[in-house]
């Protein structure tokens, strides 16, 4: 007999499954990023998260601008990444929870597996986005120096998109459990998204200046706490949830 299944196995499988979706998502995003300007669609983005990322990675957070459209691929893909994570979150309970319980695995193992995989997917996306950005920078602006704060930028980026996964997870679990009562969870998810956006809006241009390092750290911690709280709500909702016979 094979060994007992555990959340590690689920975590690994869910990570791979969602990353395989992410490959498609990333490929389309990259294609759009390259093709849109060629056919005259303006992709210049007013994306704060992307700007932050590009500023930090290019070591120019205190400079007015960094010129690959002031943002580059990282800014282009930041918002779509959030939507991608939101969708992954929404789909998780209806598709994966049902599947795992059908295979004789516990809700608990599903929860921990899904949580671990969401963190993994968020940070893989953040790191890959960063790498694409670095390549972009090497090609278009080789004179710029990589700043030491870039790991923090990856963390910030990862946490931001993870928050959207949490929002989607709340919605998906809410609807699965309460049908139309799930509408309330949309409200909760919007509140979560607003909180995170507001938190990263304010100190954005200068979050990681040394003088502001504390406010940046506080935002990181606060975002992590909000994500943790959302995950906890999902766990409470799904702990003894009835699986639909679909």
């Amino acid at each position: 007999m094979k060994s007992a299944n555990s959340f590690r196995k689920i975590g690994m499988d869910l990570t791979l499954a969602q990353l395989s979706w992410a490959v498609w998502f990333g490929a389309f995003a990259l294609a759009a990023y390259i093709v849109f300007p060629l056919i005259g669609i303006n992709i210049e983005s007013n994306n704060k998260l992307g700007q932050l990322f590009s500023n930090v990675l290019s070591g120019s957070w205190d400079k007015e601008s960094f010129n690959i459209d002031n943002s580059g691929f990282i800014a282009f893909i930041a918002n779509p990444s959030k939507i991608f994570m939101l969708v992954c979150g929404i789909l998780s309970v209806p598709s994966f929870l049902t599947f795992f319980v059908k295979q004789g695995l516990t809700r608990k193992d599903y929860f921990y597996g899904a949580a671990v995989s969401s963190v993994a997917v968020a940070f893989v996306l953040a790191i890959v986005s960063g790498v694409v950005f670095l390549i972009e920078q090497l090609i278009f602006a080789p004179e710029l120096q990589l700043d030491y704060a870039w790991p923090i930028a990856i963390v910030v980026y990862g946490l931001n998109i993870l928050a959207y996964y949490a929002a989607g997870w709340l919605i998906g679990a809410g609807f699965y459990r309460f049908s139309f009562g799930g509408l309330l969870f949309i409200l909760l998810a919007i509140l979560l998204a607003i909180a995170v956006e507001v938190m990263w809006e304010m100190p954005l241009s200068d979050t990681l200046k040394l003088a502001q390092v504390w406010s940046g750290l506080v935002s990181i911690l606060a975002t992590a706490v909000l994500i943790g709280a959302s995950f906890t709500v999902v766990r409470i909702m799904t702990k003894r949830i009835r699986i639909k016979l679909k």
Binding site: T106, R107, K246
Partner: peptide
């Protein structure tokens, strides 16, 4: 059985799935 990893895995419930 419920939510017990070591027990649940021994039961399979086949139904008319969609």
């Amino acid at each position: 059985i419920f939510e017990q990893r070591e027990v649940m895995q021994h039961v399979i419930f086949v139904y008319d799935a969609d």
